[in-house]
Design a protein around this nucleic acid. Sequence first.
DNA 1: CAGGGCCTGTCACCGGAATGTCACTCTGCG
DNA 2: CGCAGAGTGACATTCCGGTGACAGGCCCTG
Lengths: 234, 234
Amino acid sequence: MSGVILVIEDEKDLVAALEYNLEREGYQTRSALTGRAGLELAEAEPAPDAVLLDLMLPDISGIEVCRQLRASKRTQQVPVLMLTAKGEEIDRVVGFEVGADDYVVKPFSVRELMLRVRALLRRQQRDEADGNEVAFGRLRLDSGGHRAWVDDQEAVLTALEFRLLTTLLLRRGRVQTRERLLQDVWGIEADVTTRTVDTHVKRLRQKLGGAGEYIETLRGVGYRFRESPAGAGA
Amino acid sequence: MSGVILVIEDEKDLVAALEYNLEREGYQTRSALTGRAGLELAEAEPAPDAVLLDLMLPDISGIEVCRQLRASKRTQQVPVLMLTAKGEEIDRVVGFEVGADDYVVKPFSVRELMLRVRALLRRQQRDEADGNEVAFGRLRLDSGGHRAWVDDQEAVLTALEFRLLTTLLLRRGRVQTRERLLQDVWGIEADVTTRTVDTHVKRLRQKLGGAGEYIETLRGVGYRFRESPAGAGA
DNA sequence: CAGGGCCTGTCACCGGAATGTCACTCTGCG
DNA sequence: CGCAGAGTGACATTCCGGTGACAGGCCCTG
């Protein structure tokens, strides 16, 4: 499971080194040399899965950047790892206060940083997995418990079906091509000829009964989860 | 729902950060830099609703503090969340055995900690409503005495089995992947190929007899302790 | 120090659930 | 009407988890 890491840091050499190492670990990276640029990138698509944030930036302080990240709905949940120079230890407290998730004191070992990043993402994933219930019309999902209900009647789904449903629901309103689904749900490199997706959509609809209608077929394109529960959708 | 949280931790910075964040979440805080002072505060009025306890304290070890908290009638029921440094992992096991309710490994994310605290208090409330014995359907546990009964018939469990059962029960309703269990019960970095978890679940079920059904298998995902004792219901 | 029993992890085998494929049918659209 | 793409049921295969057996390690005991 990889992810997108945003690096906000004004020392170019360090940025280069971090990007190199992160990419070698399989992450994608974005980087910004100033706080402002960083905030902009953080709002951009795709949203980063984690942010490495220097405390000392040329324009806005890292603290402020962090505060703003926490203020924005879009980036509120993104874990932030602070990079602080030695002697700025007091700031560590402040860092925690603003909601940083972890910090590393410069000079740090890249190896350690990589471990921290991985831990951060794992933690994030776990919190999401523990996460609460999502309701959509007659449908209700509990991601932590891996359960689904339609009209308060439990629908017993297999692991794959649950993943498929989650993926569709998460991206409701946007079409998912079979190719995309194969890649994201199955983790397979796309083979467009296969009917696998169709079959599983069928099974899913069957198990969901009435709520199966939320999954719409777009002929020649793919599948789409309805934007809103009521009526024929948005 | 607010409450009083007692922080026992000798790093002043960390204490400050924790207090700040806890108060921002609406909790009241008390803090102590040593185990002795902590125990004193724990007995004081008003009794804390939860304790954050560092494992490594200058005077008494966190383990001992926890033991004493459990020994005192007044603080017996107060949930304890252990803060352990990396590498003290072995102690984590001991922590559970002494009756800690949860633990977090340093360095931890403050956000994560806040979530845990909230979860702890929620659970506490629920358990109090249940009456304070750890009972679940036909199953009854004495976490201090390390004993388990099914229909008033004692089931003799090994330390590992007991820990596994406790972990599952504590997180009832939520799926635990084998990976997660290996990490939390065994303290091993995950090796997904191993069948160890399966074997122990088998043994546990066997020993629990009828109550073994409380442990559900989710094919392709992991294990889940039933949410409520009766039926398969929600 | 040897012996024995318990705890624990690994292995191989097996049955059944989950999944993928196929062939056929159905539908929408030109 | 014909075609392409989607729905569907049946079937084959794969994969996962349950299980029993076994071996190493540890502790207790004599």
